[in-house]
């Protein structure tokens, strides 16, 4: 494939293998994906199917055993560690299954941890995002004072702080009830016109709004 053609996020025949003594286990087997710049992508699969591993490979948090991942035509394997850090810091946003919020920071301060260094407008933008996500009244609260759904919304705000080109969400609704889960998915879906949102989940009901769904089983992917 000509690298100039690879805009957005692409994976080419990627494998992720774990060595367990003499055994080799493949978490991801020969996955190729061509993801556009914008949209709402779901990756669905049962536990152990390799969907989270795929997400971590796509986000650059893990290195593929073989195959290649490109971001705007540039291969991850050609990037230095600092470049990959910069990519994650400035172009990607993350929503994890657990909120991983700092308990000594307020909600708004937690969101600000997602901003780029030296961004003078970060506070104003954080407040706008809080308004948009309906948690502005919780801005001064600490994470322990928030419900599970509110905490996950703070995480979404943190992920959106840099207006990322890609948001990676790993089971963002797993710790929430159905109603809150749907709200969180709606909020992530609302970002589909501004960037690419990739959500990993095992819950089919949460993927109503997805533009595209990939099903994973035993490390392989099938587009739905």
């Amino acid at each position: 494939m000509n690298e100039d053609q690879k805009q957005g996020l692409c994976a080419e025949n990627i494998y992720l293998a774990y060595n367990d003594g003499s055994d080799v286990t493949f978490a991801v087997r020969g996955v190729s994906l061509d993801l556009s710049d914008v949209g709402f992508i779901g990756i669905l699969g049962p536990s152990g199917s390799g969907k989270s591993s795929l997400l971590y490979l796509l986000s650059g948090l893990k290195r593929a055993t073989s195959g290649e991942i490109y971001y705007n035509g540039r291969a991850y394997s050609d990037m230095k560690e600092k470049e990959r850090l910069r990519l994650r810091r400035n172009h990607y946003g993350f929503v994890f299954q657990q909120p991983y919020l700092f308990d000594y920071l307020t909600a708004i301060e937690n969101a600000l941890t997602g901003a780029s260094p030296g961004d003078d407008q970060a506070l104003a933008r954080a407040m706008e995002i809080f308004e948009e996500l309906g948690i502005a009244r919780n801005a001064k609260k600490r994470p322990r004072q928030l419900s599970g759904g509110e905490r996950q919304r703070v995480c979404i705000a943190r992920a959106m702080m840099n207006s990322p080109t890609v948001i990676f969400a790993d089971e963002p609704t797993a710790a929430l009830d159905r109603q809150n889960g749907h709200k969180v998915m709606e909020m992530l879906a609302s970002y589909r016109n501004r960037g690419l949102v990739i959500v990993v989940t095992h819950d089919t009901a949460m993927l109503d709004e997805c533009d595209r769904i990939y099903r994973m089983r035993d490390g392989t992917v099938q587009e739905n």
């Binding site: 000594y104 920071l105 307020t106 708004i108 301060e109 600000l112 941890t113 901003a115 260094p117 030296g118 961004d119 970060a122 506070l123 954080a126 801005a139 001064k140």
Partner: peptide, 19 residues
């Protein structure tokens, strides 16, 4: 955590490690 939350925290302009 360089962005201090003006007007809503009692500890303004405090470096992150002191926070």
């Amino acid at each position: 955590w360089r962005h201090n939350h003006q007007g809503d925290t009692t500890i303004r302009n405090l470096p992150a490690f002191l926070l």
